[in-house]
Simulated scan of single mutants.
Amino acid sequence: MTALPDGQADKSMTELLLAVGRSQDIDAFETLFRYYAPRIKAYMSRGGGSASAEELMQETMVAVWKKAALYDASKGAASTWIFSIARNLRIDAYRRERRPEFDPNDPAFVPDEAPAADVAMAAFQDAGRVQRALLSLPADQATVLKMSYFEDQSQSAIAAALDLPLGTVKSRMRLAFDKLRALIGGDPS
């Protein structure tokens, strides 16, 4: 194709693109390809990234062939439509490059190792001792501990729920901890 002034080139390319869209005119597409392929390749090579400019140009022209029927000349020039496709494909390629690959050995994805049998057994026995110790507490002390640690309520919320002074709730918790220490041995926290 001989070089045409910009206005005539746009009009000619628009007609060619419409022909490809209407009847998949191979000759019209070949002319479009010869005109736009080197321009798109140059555009893609300026964009950087590791995606091949040649591959992106090929993807662009395949998309032009497949989507030519969607082109609406009243919304813009053929060159604008084609370069929009090229730009979107370049962005997609950039995003694919920047997406981190899944590393199955990443510590965040590796499950914690199961505790050793002796450690698991000791924890089970400790839990049993704590449970038995809680059952041996007076009901009023056990209630404030359960509300605090199992229901995650503050001391003031417990006082309001049980209609008790805050000092009474604090005293019951202190007495409960003293009895638990004596029954279990050591610091329960």
Rank of each mutant, 00 (worst) to 15 (best):
A157Q: 14
A68T: 03
Q155W: 04
A77S: 15
S52Y: 00
M44F: 08
A142P: 03
L164G: 06
S156T: 12
A176N: 03
R132E: 11
V144S: 05
I40V: 15
E54L: 05
S23T: 14
A120S: 07
R95K: 07
S84P: 01
D178Y: 01
P5S: 08
L166Y: 04
F150D: 13
T80N: 04
R95T: 12
A73L: 10
M13E: 03
Y149V: 14
A117E: 14
V130G: 04
Y149G: 14
L18D: 03
A51M: 06
L180S: 04
G47V: 03
L70W: 08
L162F: 12
L89E: 03
Q8Y: 09
Y94S: 05
R172S: 01
V119G: 06
S79I: 12
P107I: 06
L183G: 03
S79W: 11
S156Y: 01
S171P: 02
R95N: 09
I26M: 07
A127K: 07
R96G: 01
P5A: 06
M61T: 13
R34P: 09
A120M: 11
G186F: 13
I82N: 02
A51F: 09
D27C: 05
G47R: 06
F102Y: 14
P111G: 11
A176D: 02
S52C: 02
A108Q: 12
R98P: 02
R132T: 13
G48A: 05
M13Q: 06
G7N: 12
R95P: 03
P38D: 00
E59H: 05
A159N: 02
M147D: 04
A19P: 04
D163V: 11
I82C: 09
A161Q: 09
I40E: 02
A182T: 11
T80K: 04
R132N: 06
E97L: 07
T14W: 00
G76V: 15
R99P: 00
S45D: 00
D118C: 10
S79K: 11
G128I: 03
Q141H: 03
T2D: 13
M13Y: 02
I40P: 00
R90Y: 06
R132C: 12
R174P: 03
D10R: 13
V130H: 04
E15C: 08
K66T: 13
A73P: 12
K11D: 13
R98C: 12
G49V: 09
G186E: 14
G186Y: 15
K67F: 07
S52E: 14
E59D: 15
K146H: 09
E97M: 08
P107E: 01
W81A: 02
L175G: 05
K75T: 15
E97H: 02
V130I: 14
P188F: 00
T14C: 02
K11W: 08
T31I: 15
D187K: 10
T60V: 15
I91C: 10
D163H: 11
